[in-house]
Deep mutational scan, measured.
Amino acid sequence: TGIVNVSSSLNVRSSASTSSKVIGSLSGNTKVTIVGEEGAFYKIEYKGSHGYVAKEYI
Rank of each mutant, 00 (worst) to 15 (best):
G2A: 08
S20D: 04
E45N: 09
L26F: 04
V12L: 03
S7E: 10
S7M: 10
E56M: 13
K31Q: 13
Y46T: 02
S19V: 10
G24T: 02
T1A: 09
I3P: 04
V6M: 09
L10C: 12
I34N: 00
Y52E: 00
G39M: 05
T30Y: 07
E45L: 15
L26D: 00
S8E: 12
E56K: 15
V12R: 01
Y42T: 02
H50M: 09
N11H: 15
E38I: 09
E45T: 09
L26Q: 02
A54F: 11
G24C: 04
I58Q: 02
S25T: 15
V35S: 04
S17N: 12
E38A: 08
N29H: 13
T33R: 11
S20C: 05
E56D: 08
G28S: 14
H50Q: 07
T33Y: 11
G48M: 07
V32K: 00
S20F: 07
K31I: 15
G36P: 00
S15Y: 08
V53W: 01
T18Q: 12
I58L: 06
S17V: 06
T18Y: 15
V6Q: 09
S25H: 14
V32L: 05
Y46A: 01
G51W: 03
A16C: 05
S27M: 14
K31S: 11
S15T: 11
S7C: 14
N11Q: 14
G48S: 08
S27I: 11
G36V: 03
V32M: 04
E37A: 08
V4E: 03
I58E: 02
R13D: 01
K21P: 15
E45S: 08
G2V: 09
F41R: 01
G48C: 08
G36D: 08
V4A: 05
S8Y: 12
E45G: 04
E56H: 12
V32E: 00
Y42F: 10
L10W: 04
Y52R: 00
T1H: 13
A54D: 09
I34T: 02
G51T: 01
S27T: 12
L10M: 07
K43T: 04
T1S: 12
G36L: 05
V4P: 04
I44Y: 00
G2E: 04
S17E: 08
G36W: 04
T33L: 09
A40I: 10
F41P: 00
I34H: 00
Y46K: 00
S9W: 13
K31N: 09
E45Y: 10
E45Q: 09
S19I: 10
V32P: 02
N29R: 11
A16I: 05
V6W: 06
N5D: 06
L26I: 11
K21A: 15
S9H: 14
N29W: 15
V35T: 07
E38M: 08
S20M: 03
G39E: 07
V4H: 05
K31L: 14
H50T: 11
Y57K: 07
L26W: 02
S25N: 11
K21N: 12
K21W: 08
V35M: 09
S49D: 08
I44G: 00
F41Y: 11
G28T: 13
G39W: 04
V22N: 05
I58R: 02
N5V: 12
Y42P: 00
N29S: 10
A54E: 15
K47R: 11
V6C: 14
E38H: 08
E56W: 08
E56A: 13
L26P: 00
Y42M: 03
S14V: 13
F41K: 01
T18K: 12
L10I: 15
G28Q: 12
Y46P: 00
L10Y: 04
Y46G: 00
G28P: 15
R13C: 08
K21I: 11
K31C: 11
Y42G: 00
V32D: 00
I58C: 03
G28V: 11
K55R: 08
S7T: 13
S49F: 10
A54V: 10
S49Y: 10
Y46L: 03
Y52D: 00
G2M: 08
G36H: 05
S15N: 09
S14C: 10
S14F: 12
I44P: 00
E38D: 10
G36A: 08
V32S: 01
H50G: 04
N5P: 05
Y42R: 01
Y46N: 01
I34A: 01
L10A: 13
K31W: 15
A54G: 09
R13I: 06
G39K: 06
N29G: 15
S49R: 13
S7W: 07
Y46F: 14
S8F: 13
V53I: 08
S14T: 08
K55F: 03
K31E: 11
T33P: 03
G51V: 03
G39D: 07
V53C: 04
S8I: 11
S19H: 12
N11I: 15
Y52P: 00
L26R: 01
G24Q: 02
S7Y: 07
S17Q: 08
S25F: 14
V35A: 05
G48F: 06
I34M: 04
F41G: 00
V35N: 04
Y42Q: 01
T1R: 08
K55A: 04
E56F: 09
N11K: 15
S15P: 01
R13Y: 15
S14K: 13
K43M: 10
T18D: 14
S25M: 15
S17D: 12
T30G: 06
I23C: 05
G28W: 13
Y46W: 12
K43V: 12
V12Y: 01
N29L: 11
S17Y: 07
S20A: 15
V6I: 14
R13L: 15
S19W: 08
V53T: 02
I3S: 06
E37L: 07
S14W: 08
K55Y: 02
G48I: 04
G24W: 05
N29V: 06
A40H: 10
T30H: 07
G2P: 05
F41Q: 02
S49V: 13
I3R: 11
N5K: 11
A16Q: 03
R13W: 15
N5A: 09
K43W: 05
A54C: 12
L10S: 04
K43P: 00
A40K: 10
N5T: 11
T1Y: 09
I3L: 09
G24N: 02
I23L: 10
